[in-house]
């Protein structure tokens, strides 16, 4: 892992996959986030509507992203976010790819999600710079792990 730490890999833009792993076409938030992340200098990969957790992991790995940002508004975050983490683990990529969550997530569920490795879990109304600095932090960690 040695030479990686001295590389200025932080010069390279953060690659982030933005997805809503639900049967849900409401994409207002996704487009606002996509634009905000792009304007913050990130390369945003968006796979379109209705991706399954399997598709999300496949894309994250093929695109070698630093961060997966998943959002759900339908209340199924405990099952679906868990599924995403399980698939990531199966591909031996957890730790290499950070997972950040968002959406309609009650306060009580946040610690449970953090425990399985999904951090952030921001609700609507969170200031964009808070979300972005959290993502930057996690991306740095993921990159340090990769190399």
């Amino acid at each position: 892992m040695g030479s990686g730490k001295n590389q200025k890999s932080s010069e390279r833009p953060i690659r982030i996959l933005l997805a809503k792993p639900a049967i849900d076409g409401h994409d207002r938030g996704i487009y606002v986030l996509a634009r905000a992340f792009r304007d913050a200098g990130m390369e945003v990969i968006y796979p379109g509507l209705l991706p399954t957790p399997e598709e999300i992991i496949n894309i994250a790995i093929d695109e070698d992203v630093d961060v997966i940002a998943i959002s759900l508004l339908n209340g199924s975050h405990m099952t679906i976010f868990k599924k995403v983490m399980e698939l990531l683990k199966k591909r031996h990529a957890e730790g290499d790819i950070a997972v950040v969550g968002g959406g309609t997530i009650p306060e009580a569920d946040r610690p449970k999600l953090e425990k399985i490795g999904v951090t952030g879990n921001y609700g609507p109304g969170t200031p964009m710079n808070e979300i972005i600095s959290h993502i930057r932090k996690r991306a740095e960690e993921a990159r340090a792990n990769k190399w």
């Binding site: 833009p13 992340f37 200098g41 796979p47 598709e55």
Partner: peptide, 14 residues
């Protein structure tokens, strides 16, 4: 301006 990008070509490919 920002150096970022929106990489949306996978939408049609999945």
């Amino acid at each position: 301006f920002s150096g970022g990008a929106f990489l949306g070509n996978r939408i049609r490919m999945e």
